[in-house]
C-alpha cells in the first residue's frame, strides 16, 4: 500500500499547468502489484482554499490546505513548516513536487528535514518492489540515469511538460482539511521585500509548449525581433543560445543549454543556432525540433526533425507570416 502526497503549485490564485501533470504521475504509480491507497494534494499559499475543488477534480482523495498571509511569497522557512505538517498528516511513501523554482527548493528542504532520499527532475516515475524507481537526465541530458530511492518516504521532483496530465472531472469531491501550521511573518527569516520586473504573463521556458530560440547567427541584439515575432506568431516563448547570452544580447534566464535551462517543449524552433553540444543537451528532449541555419553541416540539423538550410533573415519573416495566417 502506498500513500502519495502531491504539492500543487498555485501562484496568483489558480493551479499551475503542472498541477495536473503531478496528479497524473501520482495516479500512474498504481498497478504492477502496487495499490495506491490514497492521494493527498497539498495547497500552500494565500487565498488557496478556493482551489480545493480544482484539486479534487484532478483526482485527489483528500486536499490539505495551508492558507495564510505568511504564504503570500514562497519562502523555504514558511512553506517547509506547512509542508512538514501536511506530511505528518499524510504519512506518505512518496511526495511529489514539480521541478519548478518553488518545487526545487521545497523538495530538498523537506527531504533534509525528514532525512528522506530525494530524486530530482524526473522524466519517469514508478514503484518497483516498494522502492521508488525513476529516470532522470544527467549531464544536462547527455545521459539518462535510472535511480532508486529506498528510504521509507522518498521525495521527488518531476520535470514539467513530461507527465501525462490527469483529466479534470468537475464534480468530483474530496475531503478538505485545513493545516494550521501557525506560520507568521516572524518565522520567516528570508523576507521578500518586493518583486521586481514581474515576469510577463508568458510561461517560464521550462513550462512552455513552444519555444523559439535565437543564436549568434542573428548578428546582433537589434535583430531579435525576428525571434520575438516568430514566437508571437506561434504563441511561443523566446529562448537564446549561450553565445547570445554571453554576448549580453539576452538575459541569463532565457538561456537554453547545460548552463541554462533544460527544456522539453512540444515544438522547439532554433534560429541561427549551430548546436553546440551544451545547447543540444538542453533541448534534445523536445518533441519536435525545427532548425533554420545557413550551414547545412551545423550539428543542430543532426537532432532536428525538420531543417531549412537558409538565411534566417530571409526565411524567418516568411515563416512568421505563414504561421500567423494559420492562427487567424
Amino acid at each position: 500500500m502506498t500513500r502519495v502526497c502531491v504539492f500543487l503549485e498555485a501562484p496568483g490564485g489558480k493551479l499551475k499547468k503542472s498541477a495536473a501533470e503531478m496528479m497524473g504521475a501520482a495516479q500512474g504509480l498504481g498497478g504492477d502489484g502496487t495499490i495506491v491507497e490514497g492521494i493527498d494534494a497539498v495547497l500552500i499559499g494565500q487565498g488557496v482554499t478556493t482551489l480545493a475543488d480544482d484539486a479534487a477534480a484532478l483526482g485527489a482523495d483528500r486536499v490539505l490546505v495551508a492558507d495564510a498571509d505568511a504564504f503570500a511569497h514562497f519562502t523555504v522557512d514558511g512553506h517547509l513548516k506547512a509542508m512538514l505538517k501536511a506530511v505528518a498528516a499524510s504519512s506518505p511513501n512518496v511526495v511529489i513536487f514539480p521541478a519548478s523554482t518553488t518545487g526545487r527548493d521545497l523538495a530538498p528542504a523537506l527531504a533534509a528535514a525528514t532525512q528522506s532520499a530525494i530524486l530530482t527532475d524526473l522524466v519517469e516515475l514508478k514503484l518497483t518492489d516498494g522502492d521508488v524507481c525513476a529516470q532522470k537526465p544527467v549531464y544536462a541530458g547527455k545521459a539518462m540515469a535510472t535511480v532508486r530511492g529506498s528510504t521509507d518516504c522518498v521525495v521527488v521532483t518531476l520535470r514539467p511538460n513530461v507527465f501525462e496530465p490527469a483529466a479534470a472531472e468537475a464534480g468530483k469531491s474530496a475531503a478538505t482539511e485545513t493545516i494550521d501550521a501557525g506560520v507568521t511573518q516572524d518565522d520567516i527569516r528570508t523576507v521578500v521585500k518586493e518583486v521586481l520586473a514581474k515576469a510577463s504573463e508568458k510561461l517560464d521556458l521550462t513550462e512552455a509548449d513552444i519555444i523559439v530560440s535565437g543564436g549568434r547567427g542573428l548578428k546582433g541584439p537589434e535583430n531579435w525581433h525576428l525571434v520575438e515575432n516568430l514566437a508571437e506568431a506561434v504563441g511561443g516563448v523566446c529562448g537564446a543560445s549561450r553565445a547570445v547570452v554571453d554576448a549580453g544580447w539576452r538575459p541569463h534566464e532565457e538561456q537554453v543549454g547545460q548552463t541554462g535551462k533544460t527544456v522539453s517543449p512540444k515544438l522547439y524552433i532554433a534560429i541561427a543556432i549551430s548546436g553546440a553540444i551544451q545547447h543540444l543537451a538542453g533541448m534534445r528532449t523536445s518533441k519536435c525540433i525545427v532548425a533554420i541555419n545557413t550551414d547545412s553541416e551545423a550539428p543542430i540539423f543532426k537532432v532536428a526533425d525538420y531543417g531549412i538550410v537558409g538565411d534566417a533573415f530571409e526565411v524567418v519573416p516568411v515563416l512568421t507570416e505563414e504561421l500567423a495566417k494559420l492562427r487567424t
Binding site: 528522506s116 532520499a117 530525494i118 530524486l119 524507481c133 537526465p137 544527467v138 541530458g141 547527455k142 545521459a143 539518462m144 540515469a145 535510472t146 535511480v147 532508486r148 530511492g149 529506498s150 528510504t151 534534445r284 528532449t285 525540433i289 540539423f301 543532426k302 537532432v303 532536428a304 526533425d305 531543417g307
Partner: peptide
Amino acid sequence: TMALDKLEPPAAREGG
C-alpha cells in the same frame, strides 16, 4: 539511500 541502477545514452533522435 539512493542507488544508481543504470546510466545510458539518451534516446537517439532520428533527425537530419
